[in-house]
Design a protein around this nucleic acid. Sequence first.
DNA 1: GATAAAAACCCCCTTTAGGGGGGTGTTTGC
DNA 2: GCAAACACCCCCCTAAAGGGGGTTTTTATC
Lengths: 203, 203
Amino acid sequence: MIKVAIVDDHKILTEGLQGLIAESGIATVAGVAHSAAACRLSIGFWKPDVVLLDVGLPDGSGIDLCKELKTQVPGMKILALTTHNEYTVVRQMLDNGASGYLIKNAMADEVLAGIQAVAAGETFLCHEIDLLMKRPQEKNIWLSPRERELLRLVTEGLTNAEIAEKIFLSPETIKGYRKNLLLKLGARNTAVLVKMALEQKLI
Amino acid sequence: MIKVAIVDDHKILTEGLQGLIAESGIATVAGVAHSAAACRLSIGFWKPDVVLLDVGLPDGSGIDLCKELKTQVPGMKILALTTHNEYTVVRQMLDNGASGYLIKNAMADEVLAGIQAVAAGETFLCHEIDLLMKRPQEKNIWLSPRERELLRLVTEGLTNAEIAEKIFLSPETIKGYRKNLLLKLGARNTAVLVKMALEQKLI
DNA sequence: GATAAAAACCCCCTTTAGGGGGGTGTTTGC
DNA sequence: GCAAACACCCCCCTAAAGGGGGTTTTTATC
């Protein structure tokens, strides 16, 4: 029997999940945490095979928590379960060690299939995410860490001069990055840049 | 017995809700819809007393659907059930006729309390939203329809001249609105303006 | 060891946004 | 009836962004 832990702050959802998993007969729920902190405290006791992990936790990013958990217990499989269907989020989760990715409007049977697959050491993406990841590359934007940092500072409303001062670079360099970001994202100005950054969760 | 309909595309959540409501003994689930379109088709047959309505539906805004449902069946109570905890969203839902507002990380008993309250003709806000709505006014930003329209066009990346042409106003007027928006939202430039607009769902 | 990509840097010039003022008339709610 | 909010318009000036063209160094990948 597969031991599953659930980390998600939506209490109604976790209750539904618990019922679903218990009834399925393929797994048992070792524990439920409603925050990243609660997860960190309990995960050592639960020793689950699979963690159903939300990305949007109240006290931190599931993306970071995923990396953390995989570092501590490399054998434990992470199955992301979120509302986000943005390429950047999925890719970051997978880069941080997640074995699978489900979106919350997936059917119940996909959840069970996902748990079984990742427990068996496979990679599992729900249908919609699978399609997303297979799209032509040019539609899925991927920024370098430096570009992401710059984009973040731009969305904060800092000017080129302020950014330059903050990260010890020449203002001209910042300008260069900004031009590149506009080109890369196909944005005509800062407003669109910020919009895309937030909508596609590029930061 | 209160008759409840559920409109939400998160299938796992709706299953959890169904169980929760059935077990409670205070209400029965008349039907479940996973989209606005499905809701429109079935609501006439279900004739529920209370509709649990999500804001983020795949095929349209729950805010609009709320208004639509209240116009067609004024006696039917709408109880919003969403992830959004932004003032603007809550206020728009209430303005459009919703009798209550729950956020999805609320406890299960708040859902039942909410159903009972709105069925009895009362207004129900879950704890977190209640606090939000009672904050000092200056923290809860509210824009006029015209300001919202302008803000939307700004986030689309249009320049003052383009906006002016589009809505048949003088570029100087647009400039005035923009200055006012910066002042009203406390934003230092367009980047922050766009960020706030999207984060607080002002558009 | 070649190739490519990221990262850092620079100049010129034009357009747009932002900061500071000023003002008018018209709804709308109390 | 009157204030408040809304919608509309104009000036001047500076700061910042955007469009065009470049260079070099490091770092990873094949």
